[in-house]
Computed example of a mutant assay.
Amino acid sequence: MNTQAPPPVTDDSETSVQRLARQTAVHSRLRTRHKGLIASLLFVVVLPVVLTSLYLALLAQPQYASETGFVVRQEESVSASQMLGGLSQVLGTPSASNSDLLFEFIQSQAMVRRINDELGIVGHYAQFWPLDPVYSIRPDITIEDLAQFWRRMIRITHDKSSGVIMVEARARDAAMAQQIAREIVAQSEAMINMLNAQARRDSIANAEADLDQALSALRSAREALVAFQARTQILDPQADIQGRMGVVANLQQQLAEALVDYDLLLQATDSTDPRVRQLDRRIRAIEQRIAGERASYSSDGTTEDADSYPSLLATYEGLRVDVQFAEEIYRVSLTALNQARTAAERQQLYLATFISPTSAETAEYPRKVLLVALTAFFCMMGWSVGALVYYSLRDRG
C-alpha cells in the first residue's frame, strides 16, 4: 500500500493561528475616535499643565510671607462694687464676639483702604503688571477688585473657641510683607481702641440716663408724700396714732380715779350729795371723750373727704415705701455711674500680640510644584469624566 508522505515543514511557512493574529493586528489600527481622544487629552490635560508650568517658571514673581498672631482680651479684674453684687449686670460686660468683628474687619474694604493709604499697596502689587497678571493688579484698580485681591494675598485663620487670629501677609519682598503685617496689627489695635471708646461712651451715657430717671422717680415719690401730708395735715400717721393712744390711756387713768372717788363718796354720803352728781358728770364726760378718741381711729374728721384712719395709714405706708425704693434705686444708679466713670479710665479691651510680624528669608509663594500638581489632577479628572460621559452617550446612541 502506497503511503503519501506529508509535505515538508519549512521556516517560511505560517500556521493558521499566526495568520489570524496578523490579520487582527492589521485591522486594529488607530481610528478617528482614538485620535480624538488623544487630542482631547493633549488639549485638556497636557496643554494646561505645560502652560501652568511655563507661567510659574518664567512669569510668576516670587512672594514673601510674614506671619503674625494676636487675640482680643478683656480685663479680668473685678472691682469692689462688683464684688458686692449686681453692678456687673447694670454696667454690662464686653461682648465675646469682638474677635469675630476683628476677623471680618481685616478682610473688609475699610482695612484695605487704610493700609493702601499708609503703605501704597496698589503701587507695590502693580509693579509687574501686565507681565504677571495672576499675582499682580492694574494700577487703576477699583476698591472692590482690590479687596478681592487683598483676600488672596492675606490668609486669615480664626479659632472661635479661643479667639486666636493668625494672619499671613504676602508681598513682593520680605520688608513689604512685614510692613503689611505690622500695619494689620496697628489697624486692629485702632479698631479695639475705638470699641473701647464706644463702650465707655455708651456705659457712661446709660448710667447717666439711669441716674436721671432714678432722680426723677425719687422727686415724684417725695412730692406725693408731701402732698399727702399737706392734705391730711398729718406728718406721720404712726406718730399721730401713738399720741392718740397716749391720750386714751390718760383718759382711762382719769376715769379709773373718778370711779374710785365716786365709790368712796357714795359710801360716805347718799346720791343726793352735790359732789356725787358732779363726779357722775365727770365720769360721763371722760367716757364720752374716750369713745370719741376711739372712734377717731376709724374716721378722721379733720379731712374734707373724711378718709378712714386705716386708709390714711395704708396710703402713707405705700408712699413711704415708694420713697424708700426710689432712694435705693437712686443710690444704686449713682454707684453705677461712679463705677462706669472708673471703668472708663481703664482699658477694658486690648489686643495681645503673641507672634510679632516675622521677616521672611525665602520666597515661599507661589508654590509651583503644588500648583502644577493640582492643575494636572483637576484637568485629568475633568478629562476622565468628559471621556466617560462621551462614550456612555455614544454607546447608547
Results as ranks from 00 to 15, higher is better:
residue 134 V to E: 03
residue 70 F to Y: 07
residue 21 A to N: 11
residue 279 L to M: 06
residue 110 A to W: 06
residue 298 S to F: 12
residue 258 A to I: 01
residue 180 I to G: 00
residue 120 G to L: 01
residue 292 G to V: 07
residue 92 G to C: 03
residue 298 S to R: 12
residue 144 E to R: 08
residue 298 S to P: 03
residue 246 G to N: 12
residue 278 Q to E: 14
residue 257 E to G: 09
residue 316 Y to A: 08
residue 8 P to K: 13
residue 2 N to V: 15
residue 21 A to Q: 14
residue 260 V to W: 03
residue 188 S to L: 00
residue 110 A to Y: 11
residue 235 L to S: 07
residue 382 G to R: 02
residue 236 D to Q: 03
residue 338 N to E: 11
residue 213 Q to T: 13
residue 304 E to V: 11
residue 333 S to T: 06
residue 14 E to T: 12
residue 310 P to A: 07
residue 346 R to I: 05
residue 162 S to E: 09
residue 192 I to V: 13
residue 213 Q to W: 01
residue 232 T to I: 03
residue 155 R to I: 14
residue 132 D to Y: 01
residue 379 C to I: 01
residue 312 L to N: 00
residue 251 L to D: 12
residue 304 E to S: 13
residue 300 D to L: 11
residue 297 Y to F: 15
residue 39 A to N: 00
residue 81 S to T: 14
residue 251 L to V: 06
residue 1 M to N: 09
residue 80 A to W: 10
residue 354 F to I: 00
residue 5 A to P: 10
residue 296 S to W: 01
residue 236 D to M: 06
residue 40 S to R: 15
residue 368 K to H: 08
residue 117 D to V: 03
residue 311 S to D: 13
residue 79 S to W: 02
residue 32 T to Q: 12
residue 191 M to K: 06
residue 179 Q to M: 10
residue 375 T to L: 05
residue 204 I to K: 04
residue 54 L to A: 15
residue 27 H to Y: 14
residue 361 E to Q: 15
residue 278 Q to F: 07
residue 369 V to G: 14
residue 124 H to K: 01
residue 143 I to E: 13
residue 87 L to R: 07
residue 347 Q to Y: 02
residue 190 A to L: 10
residue 134 V to K: 02
residue 273 D to Q: 04
residue 244 R to H: 07
residue 198 Q to Y: 09
residue 103 F to H: 09
residue 334 L to A: 13
residue 298 S to I: 12
residue 276 V to Q: 04
residue 45 V to Y: 04
residue 242 Q to S: 10
residue 61 Q to I: 11
residue 358 T to E: 01
residue 368 K to Y: 05
residue 143 I to C: 03
residue 219 R to V: 09
residue 79 S to M: 06
residue 212 D to Q: 11
residue 196 N to Q: 03
residue 281 R to I: 13
residue 378 F to G: 06
residue 13 S to T: 14
residue 72 V to Q: 02
residue 113 R to V: 14
residue 124 H to S: 02
residue 85 G to P: 00
residue 100 D to K: 05
residue 31 R to N: 15
residue 269 T to F: 07
residue 228 F to G: 03
residue 138 R to T: 08
residue 47 L to A: 10
